[in-house]
C-alpha cells in the first residue's frame, strides 16, 4: 500500500515552477529521495508536510488528503529538517520534551519519552546542556530525536548524516534501519550522500527539474546493464575457465585466481556451481556486477536535461 500518493502535482512560486506535474507513489521501508540542488525535493517535503499548498493536482499522505487534512498528516509524520535549527534557550531534553508536548503528549509522559529517545540516539549527560552549546553531531542527534519522539508512522529525514564523523554517521544509519526494519516505520531519506542510500535504502526516487525521473527498487536500479559474476577461486583460474567455456559460458580470466563470467547471475550461477563441482574447484567468493548509484543518478539527471532541451 502506498503511503504517499501524489497525482499530477504542480507547485508554482510566482512564475517559477518548482514541482511540475509530479506523480509519485512511495510505500513502506526506506526510500532515498535524491536530486540535484533545485530539483524540488524541499518543496516536495513541504507539500507532504502541508507547509505549502499545491498549485494543482491531488494527493494523499497516509490516507489523508494533502489539501484538507494537513493537521492529521502532521500528527503522523516526523520531520527532521536539514537546517541547523533548534529551539533557543532550551536544553536538549527540554527541546525533545517540547516537541512531544506539541504533539499532544502530556508533560510527564513527554519527559519520559524524551529521555528514552535521547538514550536511543546515544546522547548522554550533554542532554541537560542548552542546545546553543551543542556540537554539529549532537544537534543532528537532537533533531532526529525531536522528529521521532511522537512515534510517527512516516519519518522524513533531510540530510540526516551531513556533518557527522564516520562513526556517528554509521550510528545514525543504524538507528534509521532499526526504525524501519524492527519497528516498521516508513522512512524517506533526502540526501546527497549516495553511499548512504546504497547502504540502507530499499527504494530510490530521483528528482530533477521538479519531476520524478526514477522511482524504482534499489536492487533493480543497481542491476548491471552488462551483467556478469566475478568468481574468486582457491585454485588456478585458467583450467576452471576452460570448464566454464565448455559449459557454454563466456568467460574472461582476470588473474590467476579470479575470472569473470558474463550473463545474469540467476542463469550463470547454477552453471558455475555445476562446473565447480565437476572440476572439484573451491570457490572463495562470487560477486555479481552492479551499476553504481552515482551512474544511475547522473543518467537520470541527464535524461531529464535531454527531455527539457
Amino acid at each position: 500500500m502506498a503511503l504517499i500518493e501524489l497525482d499530477d502535482v504542480t507547485k508554482d512560486y510566482g512564475s517559477f515552477r518548482a514541482i511540475d506535474g509530479l506523480s509519485l507513489r512511495i510505500g513502506g521501508g526506506i526510500t532515498g529521495l535524491l536530486g540535484p540542488n533545485g530539483a524540488g525535493k524541499s518543496t516536495l517535503i513541504k507539500l507532504i508536510l502541508g507547509l505549502v499548498r499545491c498549485s494543482s493536482g491531488r494527493g494523499k499522505v497516509l490516507g489523508c488528503d494533502i489539501f484538507t487534512e494537513s493537521q492529521r498528516i502532521r500528527a503522523r509524520i516526523g520531520y527532521m529538517p536539514e537546517d541547523d535549527c533548534y529551539l533557543h534557550g532550551l536544553s536538549g531534553v527540554e527541546s525533545v520534551q517540547m516537541a512531544a508536548q506539541l504533539s499532544r503528549i502530556p508533560a510527564t509522559e513527554a519527559l519520559r519519552r524524551a529521555h528514552e529517545i535521547l538514550d536511543f540516539c546515544g546522547m548522554g549527560q550533554e542532554r541537560y546542556r542548552t542546545v546553543e552549546t551543542f556540537s554539529t553531531g549532537m544537534r543532528q542527534k537532537l533533531r532526529f530525536a525531536m522528529a521521532i519522539v511522537h512515534d510517527p508512522e512516516l519519518l522524513i529525514l533531510d540530510e540526516p548524516t551531513s556533518g557527522l564523523d564516520p562513526e556517528e554517521r554509521e550510528a545514525m544509519l543504524n538507528r534509521i534501519q532499526v526504525l524501519a526494519r524492527r519497528m516498521g516505520r516508513a522512512v524517506i531519506v533526502c540526501t546527497h550522500i549516495l553511499p548512504d542510500v546504497q547502504l540502507i535504502c530499499d527504494r530510490v526516487v530521483i528528482m530533477a527539474a521538479g519531476r520524478v525521473t526514477l522511482n524504482e527498487d534499489l536492487d533493480v536500479v543497481l542491476r548491471s546493464n552488462d551483467p556478469s559474476v566475478t568468481v574468486d577461486l582457491q585454485d588456478d583460474a585458467s583450467s576452471f575457465a576452460s570448464a566454464l567455456r565448455n559449459a557454454g559460458l563466456r568467460v574472461d580470466v582476470l588473474n590467476e585466481r579470479s575470472l569473470r563470467v558474463f550473463g545474469h547471475g540467476d542463469q550463470t550461477l547454477p552453471a558455475v556451481w555445476q562446473a565447480a563441482h565437476q572440476h572439484e574447484t573451491a570457490i572463495r567468493r562470487l560477486i555479481p556486477s552492479r551499476t553504481s548509484l552515482e551512474d544511475v543518478f547522473l543518467a537520470a539527471i541527464q535524461d531529464s536535461d535531454r527531455a527539457d532541451s
Binding site: 508536510l49 507547509l51 493537521q71 492529521r72 502532521r74 500528527a75 509524520i77 520531520y79 529538517p81 537546517d83 541547523d84 535549527c85 533548534y86 529551539l87 533557543h88 516537541a99 506539541l102 504533539s103 499532544r104 525531536m146
Partner: peptide, 17 residues
C-alpha cells in the same frame, strides 16, 4: 530568523498553539 518555525509548524496545530 531563529529557524525554529519549521519545528513548530510541522507539529499538529503547532502554529495555533
Amino acid at each position: 530568523e531563529q529557524r525554529s518555525w519549521v519545528y513548530l509548524a510541522t507539529r499538529p496545530n503547532g502554529i495555533f498553539w
